[in-house]
């Protein structure tokens, strides 16, 4: 499977490009309408976290296949401050008052596979997969 070029996330315009690319890759992998929406939303969440916490990072989108099943993998990585407490960041604490959580728990709920690796001061790498 050909991996697309990583998209460097450094402003909202590049984030929009990543979201559009996620939609395209998910559609061509034959994901359902809801799954396409979920993947695009997750890409947007991950990209926004990069902009917010690391300022710059990259998102790589890849159409994959395992045992005849098609899917899409999204890898978001940065060399930012990292997540101090991954467990806590995963907890739901969305509020309408504007104090957003990281959206990571929602991301995990929407995806079939979810891995987060983070080291304080070194950066963060979130990998998710959505299957057909």
């Amino acid at each position: 499977m050909a991996a697309s070029h990583p998209i460097i996330i450094h402003d909202e315009r590049s984030l929009a490009a990543a979201v559009l690319e996620a939609t395209r890759v998910a559609q061509s992998a034959g994901l359902s309408r809801v799954a396409v929406q979920q993947l695009a939303t997750v890409t947007s969440e991950l990209g926004r976290n990069i902009l917010k916490y690391a300022v710059r990072g990259r998102i790589q989108l890849e159409a994959i296949e395992r045992k005849g099943r098609k899917g899409v993998r999204v890898v978001a990585s940065d060399k930012g401050p990292g997540i101090q407490e991954v467990e806590r960041a995963m907890a739901d604490h969305y509020s309408t008052g504007g104090t957003l959580g990281l959206g990571l728990s929602g991301t995990k709920r929407m995806m079939d596979e979810f891995t987060v690796m983070s080291e304080p001061g070194k950066g963060t790498r979130v990998e998710v997969v959505k299957w057909q």
């Binding site: 309408r33 809801v34 396409v36 929406q37 979920q38 939303t41 969440e45 739901d92 969305y94 509020s95 309408t96 959580g101 959206g103 728990s105 929602g106 991301t107 709920r109 929407m110």
Partner: peptide
């Protein structure tokens, strides 16, 4: 839409 409703809920968004 159904897809938006689903993602919003899964993200834990509360529209109040």
């Amino acid at each position: 839409s159904p897809a938006i409703a689903q993602t919003m809920t899964e993200l834990g968004i509360d529209v109040g």
